[in-house]
């Protein structure tokens, strides 16, 4: 840390020798105004968006002739509009959970490989390729999912059905693999780069002294990772996962391209059909009348609330074990 005296930037005190009173330079004043102004502007914009969404949502929900939360239908046109978010909430949560279950372990594995196993010659190109994956537009993922993934997943689906079909969740009888599970797989691939690169950065920041502590006790490479790297990187991996989850929850184009939407909640994840908030909004918004738009906005508000809850939960998990966090040492 640098304890040397800061350079003297204030204007010299008045000739009287008094040091009271303030000496503020124009630069300070401009910067203060700018930062305060943008802070306020941000709050105003947020409030305006919130008010707008809430107002339109209230209009929609009060006009809904069925239960907004439990109805398995989306019919917002006509005199008897009946629509509910049950299918959308289910589909969004299920596809995101599938994506997380696949992506996070794989991402942590790749990140550990890059940070602790791969020779340097291999590590940086690999990291670069992973980062590149993040730059692919989501519609491209969607097209690849629809044209390649869907036709090729039949084998995996039959296999799942053979071994796990008895659970009901993985039962499958020949059909197009345009299901929530396929969406989950596609989302997993899409969030892999962000989760991987953030985790990798965290793993690379583990202080050498923590790793050497384990090594000096006679830990193998994997034991070093278990004792020093993973505990230190835990909160970072959670944050990385949340970034990925945020993207999975809100992903629109890729889901809309792959899923064959329906307003049913099937017992099997492998059955075609279902929907997500973002996909439903994207596919219905352009043809909706004002009331239909309000209904879609209401569903968007629910998605927003879910995202907030998920982030809050993640923060709680990180904060709960703060006293054990590596940052405190």
């Amino acid at each position: 840390m640098d304890y040397s005296a800061p350079p003297i930037t204030n204007t010299p005190p008045p000739a009287t020798g008094s040091v009271s009173g303030k000496a503020v330079r124009p630069g300070d004043r401009i910067f203060l105004g700018l930062s305060r102004g943008s802070g306020i502007a941000l709050l105003v914009i947020m409030a305006a968006i919130g008010a707008f969404l809430t107002y339109r949502s209230v209009l929609a929900i009060s006009g809904d002739k069925a239960n907004f939360f439990t109805t398995l239908d989306w019919n917002a046109a006509g005199l008897e509009p009946k629509f509910g978010i049950a299918v959308l909430a289910f589909g969004t949560v299920v596809s995101s959970v599938v994506a997380m279950l696949i992506a996070v372990p794989v991402a942590v594995g790749i990140a550990l490989f890059i940070s602790h196993y791969a020779p340097r010659k291999l590590a940086s190109p690999l990291g670069y390729v992973i980062d590149l994956l993040a730059a692919v537009p989501s519609i491209v993922y969607g097209l690849w999912g629809a044209l390649f993934l869907v036709p090729h997943l039949g084998g995996l689906y039959s296999w799942l059905n053979d071994y796990l079909g008895w659970t009901g969740i993985f039962s499958y009888s020949n059909g197009a693999a345009r299901s929530l599970f396929t969406v989950g797989i596609l989302l997993a691939i899409m969030i892999l780069p962000i989760v991987t690169s953030v985790s990798r950065e965290v793993f690379l920041q583990v202080p050498k002294m923590h790793e050497e502590a384990a090594l000096a006790l006679g830990a193998t490479r994997w034991e070093v990772i278990r004792m020093s790297v993973l505990p230190f990187g835990r909160s970072g991996v959670i944050s990385a996962s949340m970034l990925g989850l945020g993207r999975a929850l809100g992903e629109t184009m890729a889901v809309a391209t792959v899923l064959s939407p329906s307003f049913l909640i099937g017992s099997s994840l492998l059955d075609p059909g279902g929907g997500t908030f973002a996909q439903n909004i994207a596919s219905k918004f352009s043809e909706a009348d004002t009331f239909g738009q309000n209904a879609l906005i209401a569903s968007g508000l629910v998605l927003f609330v879910i995202t907030l809850l998920v982030n809050g939960a993640a923060r709680l998990i990180i904060a709960r074990r703060k006293e054990y966090s590596g940052a405190a040492a």
């Binding site: 002294m209 923590h210 050497e212 090594l215 000096a216 006679g218 004792m227 020093s228 074990r321 590596g326």
Partner: peptide
Amino acid sequence: RRTVGMVFQRPNPFPT
């Protein structure tokens, strides 16, 4: 390393 133990300059207990 299991036979020859080591103590470092800066104390480095496992923080977690």
